[in-house]
Design a protein around this nucleic acid. Structure first.
Lengths: 171, 171
DNA sequence: CGCTGTATTCAGAAATTTGTGAAGTTAAGG
DNA sequence: CCTTAACTTCACAAATTTCTGAATACAGCG
């Protein structure tokens, strides 16, 4: 009985470090392609595939082979975007970073702030180019699209929460 | 009566170049913040605020003060993303780049390809980490979210087209 | 009150991205 | 065909971004 080093004991406890790492990097790559910066993407992917859904700075640094500074920067960014939360461990000064079990993707897809800014810019465009110009009309229509999206998005998320609860049980 | 240089003649024809430029740059900045690269963002904003909804390479270069090479690169990217189309002018070898009147924002928000890739990555994650692990379950739930979104998005766009037609008339 | 384990900040090195000039390619018009 | 007006590609310079090591700040513990 050779080869009982990992992924052999009680499933859900020990883990194939290499497989995890492969997944982390490949998922991070997708996030990067979607526009996320490199380190935040890697940190986030690592947290997402951790069994606890949370890791310490040291654990992240070890898994990803990056400096504490890089962890700090990535985590700060992710926290600002509400994609992770920080927890102070009761005892020591160590901190854990946690993915919000079922809300992070709302943060990820919730471009509400962005949409609002676009709407602002478009309104400005309509007035500064003139509502009676072709360009002005085109932008007015675009603006209408975003206003439409903004509302739809909210109700869509509402439907998801309902659907989710039904399928996976309460958060 | 001094100062009758621009924005004086029939509205909708002559345009205040400076105001246009201000808007172009400010809207481009929003697009950049949303993740678009600099040149594509500027080119796109310029097209969007042109009265025709289309410009030649030379016009773009002049308005944005960039080289033909930069225009070429930006336009290639935008075309790949289906945010602009290229038109060959009947006569000469000049090409015009056009924003699709009311479909570009679908291209912009339609992350379907991206979503598909994420789903792939997540499926891989579920199997490689184990469906019976906590991490696996978390990812299965995330996967369900994206599958949900994918469908919702399609119907949302359908509703928009209906709404649009009612409000602005046929495309 | 120091000590120690953590987290953060900062200056700079390294890598990546971006935009240009110049050469190359294509096709219309003589 | 040859010329010429466009567009494209390519190598490189410049600017920006990213990550690290080192110094700094902070908080719990003895």
């Amino acid at each position: 009985m050779v080869r009982m080093n990992r992924m052999t004991e009680s499933p859900g406890t020990a883990r194939d470090a290499e497989a995890v790492s492969r997944f982390v990097e490949s998922f991070a790559a997708q996030l990067v392609e979607a526009g996320l910066a490199r380190m935040p993407a890697r940190v986030f992917a690592a947290l997402l595939s951790s069994d606890e859904g949370a890791m310490t700075s040291a654990e992240l640094g070890e898994q990803l082979r990056i400096s504490p500074a890089a962890v700090s920067g990535a985590v700060r960014y992710l926290a600002q975007q509400h994609m992770v939360s920080r927890e102070r461990e009761p005892g020591s000064r160590r901190e854990r970073y946690r993915v919000h079990g079922n809300q992070w993707y709302e943060a990820l897809t919730n471009r509400e702030t962005v949409i609002r800014r676009w709407e602002g810019a478009l309104r400005e465009g309509v007035t500064s180019l003139g509502a009676d110009t072709a360009a002005g009309r085109r932008m007015a229509e675009t603006l209408a699209f975003f206003e439409f999206i903004e509302v739809e998005f909210a109700t869509m998320m509402e439907r998801w929460r309902a659907h989710r609860e039904k399928t996976f049980g309460p958060p």
